[in-house]
Design a binder for these strands. Structure first.
Lengths: 237, 237
DNA sequence: CTATTTAATTGATAAATATCAAGCATAACT
DNA sequence: AGTTATGCTTGATATTTATCAATTAAATAG
């Protein structure tokens, strides 16, 4: 692992409170891999042999059923994924592919499980991480069930803006096709929904979104803290 | 707590591997409460002051946004809920109400958090419980995104049958209105979907479902292990 | 730079789902 | 039992979302 990436990984909530020696042991067992875009890292149904930590780039989690495919999440650095499958010693419920050239730290599942069983601080940090992840997913599911498509998009844009320090312009984190699947809509309807947000001060230029009237957009989106507010990690984030 | 309920609580994955003395300490701090049906136990947005364990009866988790309400889960004994909110020291993302007369063991959040921080085995058990809960929710979200309404219902009925030891008849765990919300449909469409499953050997008599041709229903439902299979708890379940 | 592919948009239509309005059961109350 | 409320069902209609087809725009390769 590059020395400059170390602090970001060390600062993950997943390792909060873990002794340096234990952290070093986990990381020294890990391999850092580079991947080009559109490489499938995980196939759903496969056993979870590694805990993945995205250090650079971006990764999509997706899932299939009966010929259909949908997007479950877009992962950005620095964060861990398929932790639950690793702990449960179970098959992965989601597939993963790189969206952009990415670097991933891969920690063998056996090491994670051994440290989890032996290191109290690590078990505590894992439980905290899983709590956050669970609550994030509850929010996603609430959004899916309680909001119509255009409102989901409006709130998603507001959350993206917030994650960019409320910048008035930002670039979408993936192709529109992927964003559409993430929001449970077709690319065609995403296009039309962008159009519907135009009167509320949203302008689209290719992959970049301009929010000209944040208040107007918020008035339309009616954001709800119990769906839209990010979980504040115990450490940084 | 009634002596006869003790084994079921003690056997929860949540307490697997926890020393008897620690378990006793947690339980002695708890209060056992009885509630009539349709009592709201938790209001979303409230802080999580207790970990709830449903000992008898049934509880609905639900959520609201902008005048709409939806059902998130139907809880049956013996299981814990709002664990993630308790650990995160955060507000509840879901509300809860009793569906039937219920008995609940309520363990003060402070006790849970103290034991969590001090008892390695408890931290491990909590992480395992959260892993399972997370994966359950991933499955729900996949189902919501990847299946049309009638297929969701068909698979739900197959899962209910499986949980009743593949009995050919069983009673729905809640009012049809609640089942409809759980499956993200209106009561009207639930009715019609039941009708659509009739040719596949599903008969409805009030609250009881008869599955006359399980194979035909499965052929229609196309169940997927990565959505429909229950997580096998580390202990029993 | 142009050719070729891929992604995104737009319009027309179809399908799925929701809403509204009766009507019919079922359960609870007097 | 009769009455009242409640939940469920059914039909008619409206809305939302998806699909199909065509076009435009953008990215990539030669």
């Amino acid at each position: 692992m590059r020395a400059q990436d170390m602090p970001a990984v060390r600062d993950l909530p997943l390792f909060a409170g873990v002794e340096d020696s234990n952290f070093e042991e986990l990381v020294s067992a890990a391999l850092l891999q580079h991947f080009p875009p559109q490489v499938q890292l995980i196939h759903e149904g496969d056993s979870a042999d590694f805990l993945y930590i995205l250090v650079e780039g971006s990764v999509e989690l997706f899932a299939c059923n009966n010929g259909r495919e949908t997007s479950m999440a877009i992962i950005e650095p620095t964060s861990a994924f398929i932790l639950a499958a690793v702990l449960s010693d179970a098959v992965c419920l989601m597939s993963a592919r790189t969206l952009t050239p990415s670097r991933l730290l891969m920690i063998p599942a056996e090491h994670i499980k051994r440290h989890f069983a032996e290191d109290k601080m690590f078990a505590v940090a894992i439980a905290n991480e899983l709590s956050k992840a669970y609550r994030q997913l509850v929010k996603m599911h609430k959004e899916a069930k309680l909001r119509p498509a255009t409102e989901r998009l409006a709130n998603y844009l507001l959350r993206l803006a917030a994650s960019h320090d409320h910048a008035s312009s930002f670039t979408l984190p993936a192709d529109k096709r992927t964003i559409a699947a993430l929001l449970s809509m077709t690319p065609e309807n995403l296009s039309r929904s962008f159009g519907a947000l135009n009167p509320h001060g949203v302008r689209i230029q290719g992959p970049v979104v301009h929010i000209d009237k944040p208040d107007a957009l918020a008035a339309f989106a009616k954001p709800n803290a119990l769906i839209d507010d990010p979980e504040i990690g115990l450490s940084s984030r």
